[in-house]
């Protein structure tokens, strides 16, 4: 009998043994017999020297395959024995399943993500910059004249060396326009600081998403179209947008944007303070003085910029009435998002 036949013989012998419904102890014994270091399969393997050279590989893998099969079949039976013990009292399927607790994104994060996703689809890249800025990038380059009341609009934290904690993410626009040539189409998400007393509606820091598009032939109409599309995607298809003239040193013309209250549909409710409108941010056409500061020719290029406060919008969306909750990080709060 060839050694190859011997392998087949051992396989059928094993199958027979398995067919006789062995007990748990029999199974352990079979494991030793076939798979142990001194088991029959190892013994057979040692006879590989008797096999012709060119068939040795084949012989080896045949034995290995048998080993694997036997191992799997025995383990399967051992498992069956275990579950049988359990099933004596019938499985109580109403017992709770083993659950994996999920983690959560902070509501500021998830709101930022929603924003990024929509603007990404509209062709905006993401640009970032530091939270500590020079006064030049935070104010001067953005057409805030020194000692102008416009600087009071944004209560500023100063460092001892006269740098500032950025009061908006607009200095990232300055960095971007200095680094890249138009077309520039980016949003700038990030953390900003205001030296304001903390209460339910104000915190000393918050997050913004600003956007900037600089190219030839960029118009205010296009700015409206972009923001309108964004608002309909984010707040719902039926929201309306309202633009009100305003003043920001870095844009001219400047506008505030209001979205019709998505909670009451514009009829007036607590959230919109009965006005039917929610203020969501500011926007406008990049002021020629800003272009001048970053060496872009304002006759050749025009651009628009906009900015929105993330916390405000997250609070409206999730019905959070106190901004401090966002920075308290109570896990019972966090786990709701």
């Amino acid at each position: 009998m060839s050694l190859f036949n011997k392998v087949d013989e051992l396989r059928s012998e094993f199958k027979q043994a398995l067919a006789s419904s062995p007990a748990l102890s029999d199974l352990e014994r079979m494991k030793q017999k076939y798979l142990g270091r001194k088991g029959v399969l190892n013994d057979l393997f040692k006879k590989i020297v008797e096999v012709e050279n060119d068939r040795r590989g084949e012989f080896g893998s045949l034995i290995n395959q048998l080993k694997l099969d036997i191992h799997d079949l025995i383990e399967e039976r051992i498992n069956d024995h275990r579950t049988d013990t359990l099933s004596i009292s019938a499985v109580d399927v109403t017992l709770p399943g083993v659950e994996y607790e999920r983690g959560t994104l902070h509501p500021i994060e998830s709101t930022l993500r929603d924003f990024k996703q929509i603007f990404h689809r509209l062709g905006f890249a993401v640009a970032e910059g530091p939270e500590i800025e020079t006064q030049w990038r935070n104010f001067d380059a953005l057409n805030f004249p020194p000692e102008h009341p416009a600087r009071d609009m944004q209560d500023t934290f100063f460092l001892e060396n006269d740098s500032v904690l950025r009061t908006h993410t607009s200095p990232v626009q300055v960095r971007l326009m200095l680094e890249e040539k138009p077309p520039i189409r980016s949003i700038m998400p990030g953390r900003v600081y205001r030296n304001e007393a903390i209460d339910a509606g104000h915190y000393c820091l918050f997050h913004q998403v600003e956007g900037l598009y600089v190219d030839k032939n960029v118009t205010m109409g296009e700015l409206k179209a972009t923001l309108e599309l964004f608002c309909r995607e984010y707040f719902g298809e039926n929201v309306k947008l309202r633009f009100r003239p305003s003043f920001f040193p870095f844009t001219e013309p400047s506008s505030e944007m209001d979205v019709s209250c998505f909670l009451c549909g514009g009829k007036g409710c607590r959230v919109c303070k009965q006005t039917g409108w929610l203020e969501i941010g500011g926007c406008g056409m990049v002021d020629p003085n800003v272009f001048k500061a970053v060496n872009i020719d304002s006759e050749e290029y025009t651009g628009y910029a906009f900015g929105m406060g993330i916390e405000r919008i997250a609070m409206m969306k999730y019905g959070i009435t106190d901004i401090r909750l966002l920075f308290e990080n109570d896990v019972r709060f966090l786990k709701q998002f």
Binding site: K116, L122, G123, A125, V126, A127, E128, P183, I184, R185, S186, P189, Y213, D215, N217, T219, M220, G221, E222, K224, A225, T226, E228, R242, F243, R244, P245, P253, S255
Partner: peptide
């Protein structure tokens, strides 16, 4: 624009997107 009314400025049905590869950012 202010007196004409910002809300009277027509909204175009199409708008342009810059033909430019964006840098990968740490943000991702």
């Amino acid at each position: 624009g202010r007196i004409f009314g910002y809300n009277s400025i027509p909204v175009p049905q199409h708008f342009s997107i810059a033909n430019k590869i964006n840098k990968k950012t740490p943000d991702q």
